[in-house]
Write a protein that binds this DNA or RNA. Structure first.
Length: 225
DNA sequence: AGTTGATCATTA
DNA sequence: TAATGATCAACT
């Protein structure tokens, strides 16, 4: 019988087997076991699915800039998919640093660290399906290929160069082939420090890195059978 | 205010 | 209809 994890798995294999054991269940079935109520929609509790899966897979609760399973070096990501198994949403990676970025390189970046190894949990995400009825699909354990890393690095460097040169206000979600930057905040009133066009300090909306759907779709496709 | 978990909803 | 820009909740 499925149940919430009491502690983090000791190995990646154990983590993956745990993920496999909940594939096929609905979010409602998991929530019932955990005695958690299921929202009618995700208009407000947008991170509900991710937190439910953290509970069942034994991820350390709490928000830290580190990976979900630090000792395993694994990041957990739920991803909403359509009937064809294609992503319905982009995937948030981490905050985009807007100041003190001198000396940051790709190999040591938060993006590179977060994406070193990702356990993807696809979940039916069509809005016509009530959250309780959405079914969990087979997990995918992803280590980025050399080519994928090269694609990510190229976008990351372009975006970070723009930030360093005071062009953060000129970055839109259209910049970047596989990695994009978009606002990431409670609302439009949130402001943080950034570098201006003349090197001065300016205030701007906090930003986050996101993976495009086309990119994550390729990842899931490789394991689809 | 920052960072995690993300999806919503308006626009193009 | 898909993508961009905006937003929601919990926790630190």
């Amino acid at each position: 019988m499925i149940k919430p994890a009491s502690k983090p798995p000791a190995t990646i294999q154990a983590l993956f087997e745990r993920a496999e054991s909940i594939a096929g269940f609905t979010l409602g079935e998991l929530a019932e076991v955990a005695n958690i109520r299921v929202p009618q929609n995700f208009k407000k509790e947008k991170g509900w699915s991710g937190q439910l899966l953290e509970l069942f897979l034994g991820a350390d609760a709490g928000s830290t800039p580190q990976q979900d399973f630090p000792t395993l070096g694994v990041e957990l990501k739920t991803i909403p998919i359509d009937q064809m198994g294609k992503p319905l949403e982009t995937t948030y990676v981490c905050y985009a640093p807007l100041t003190n970025i001198a000396g940051i390189n790709w190999q040591q970046s938060s993006v590179r660290n977060k994406l070193n190894c990702v356990l993807w949990i696809p979940i039916e995400g069509n809005r016509q399906i009530p959250p309780a009825d959405r079914r969990i699909a087979n997990p995918v354990l992803w280590y980025p290929s050399d080519q994928e890393l090269a694609e990510l690095q190229q976008d990351w460097e372009e975006l970070m160069d723009m930030i360093a040169l005071g062009q953060v206000e000129n970055i839109t979600a259209r910049t970047g082939a596989v990695l994009q930057i978009r606002p990431k905040a409670a609302d439009g009133s949130a402001l943080t420090d950034a570098i201006g066009a003349n090197g001065q300090r300016i205030q701007t909306r906090p930003r986050g890195f996101y993976l495009r759907k086309q990119f994550t779709g390729r990842i899931l496709e490789e394991y689809f059978s």
